[in-house]
Amino acid sequence: MSNAVLSLDQVSKAYRVRQGLFGRKLPLHALQDIAFSLQKGEVVGLVGESGCGKSTLAKILLGLLNPSKGTVSMYGQPIADMPLRERASRVQPIFQDPYSSLNPRKTVAQIVGLPLNLLGIKSADRNRQVTDMLDLVGLPQRAAGSFPSQLSGGQRQRVAIARALIARPEILICDEPTSALDVSVQSQILNLLQDLRDELNLTLLLISHNLAVVRHMSDRVVVMYLGRIVEEAETQALFDSPQHPYTHALLDTVLRPVPGQGLPYLDIQGEFPNPIRPPSGCAFHPRCKLAMDRCKSERPVLSASDGHRSACFLHDVN
């Protein structure tokens, strides 16, 4: 754990949500007792369906939201104690939609150079760094004077990556970085992220619902369901021998471009539950074909064997 660039210790986040126009405000537990860490130079994939808390987690890691409970630390130092400027120069985001995450009234050079402004770097230096950065992410120099609307989706995502990297952060939080892009553009961006990781020794948290992308990119994968981690393992181990029934179902959903394999028979029933009224016991039990009586009343804890953690009574070591 000592090598951890970023670690989360029992992080929880609750929102208060009003039910209906005149209803009471009820707590929505977006994250509960999240604990994991990112090692230097590692790519960790975070998967789960909409509403599982992936994006809330990203916001907490970026310092855009404060956790209700628990601490996030960088090299053992809580980030809550860190000045925003320092935190921002070490952790940077890449968001999903490059159409809305770039200011349409600023040129590419202004967008990419803005973080340097905040760090107080002089303008001559700044221009040189912006030029270098555009090179690094594979944008032509003439793009510097363009507005985002003049660029394609893939080019915009490159601008977002350049902006994230210009302050030389150690950690990139990528929230669905390619899900708004076409497959041929997605492959360009994923290759670029891999190259940059190797070149700059970056640590990446890759949040995605696309398991094929996560498998291709990550060293380790964390699976979330309804605000909790249900499984975590090295990528190979997770894909070869998933332990949690939810992970099983998720892995089955991957449709490969090989005709004749047929659609998957999912061992999963019903719909994603309402997070305001989560099911008792194991949150997954209403959808799980293997659920036992115990699952309805008791919540399994995340337990580890050989670095493979899962929260399911079927694999409870005790």
Binding site: S187, N191, A212, R215
Partner: peptide, 19 residues
């Protein structure tokens, strides 16, 4: 051919194809 080579998981490891 290019489109198929761009899909992660089709070939499992190494770099993705690029158009």
């Amino acid at each position: 051919r290019g489109l198929l080579s761009c899909i992660p998981g089709a070939r499992h490891q190494g770099r993705l194809g690029q158009i």
